[in-house]
Design a protein around this nucleic acid. Structure first.
Ligand SMILES: [Zn+2]
Ligand SMILES: [Zn+2]
Ligand SMILES: [Zn+2]
Ligand SMILES: [Zn+2]
Lengths: 133, 133
DNA sequence: TCTTGAACCTGTAGTCACTACAGGGATTAA
DNA sequence: TTAATCCCTGTAGTGACTACAGGTTCAAGA
């Protein structure tokens, strides 16, 4: 009996990335096309799992797929500098902070609106009134 | 000389919503199709401007267009209750707070990563190392 | 009145990061 | 052998716009 082949389903299970998403990543060139079985099914290696996990971690940090592509390139490139990686990280950090600030502004406004309203059976609502001002 | 007609361009200017977006809102039925000039150009009324401003305020608070549609319906409906409006608002507030929490988690992780890296000319980077772990 | 140029029109396609089919083929365990 | 489960490709849908291309209308100046 031959050693178990790593199919796309197995890879999906161990990385937590859905099958469709893995195929999507392949289609856009984020991960390489793996070799196929005689029947045409994808067969993966340990390296693929590592690469995909890297992508997942980046995505969990909110990096765009374009960012991830760059980070993968930097990882591959032995001539890269620490500076480039750090720059990418801090740039993204700024983006995240901007988003937080935007959402906090929304939160404050929504909170004020919600508190202005009793929420009863009344047909007059100060929330709508303020939004329609 | 006749009174100035409110064209889509004028409406865009006073509401701060782009022409393409106004047409898009019309296409998806968020705002009504206005009457046209003989040549086929859209002519708006003050009510349209108010409705569009309402939409804009809702969008600035992060409501989805589907939420906005519901809010517009509630605004129109004289039988609505305060409760329905408040519920929509607090539900959305929860969504916003969840997003903030997610982004804060990212922010913390990114900050830790960034601080682990000196950012020099080195070709070894702890950021990549941790992401690739 | 004519002409110019800005503003407007429709329809389509692109963006991002997936997700969800439909309609088939491959693999594996009983 | 057969059934169940996996896998394949290709296409289209999501949300909320945005960007054209290729044409028409309008208003103001000469
Ligand atoms: Zn570094
Ligand atoms: Zn980024
Ligand atoms: Zn209310
Ligand atoms: Zn909402």
């Amino acid at each position: 009996m031959a050693a178990q082949r790593t199919t796309i389903g197995a890879l999906a299970k161990t990385t937590g990335i859905k099958i469709e998403t893995i195929r999507y990543y392949e289609r856009i060139g984020l991960i390489p096309s793996p070799p196929r079985s005689e029947g045409g099914q994808r067969i993966y290696e340990e390296d693929d799992r590592k690469r995909l996990s890297f992508v997942k971690r980046c995505r969990e940090l909110g990096f765009s797929l374009d960012d991830v592509r760059t980070l993968l390139d930097l990882r591959q490139n032995d001539n890269r500098t620490c500076r480039e990686v750090k720059e990418k990280t801090t740039t993204h950090l700024r983006t995240v902070r901007t988003k937080i600030a935007d959402l906090k502004r929304m939160e404050r406004a929504l909170n004020t609106l919600a508190q202005s309203c009793e929420g009863g059976d009344d047909t007059h609502c100060p929330i709508l009134e303020q939004l329609f001002a």
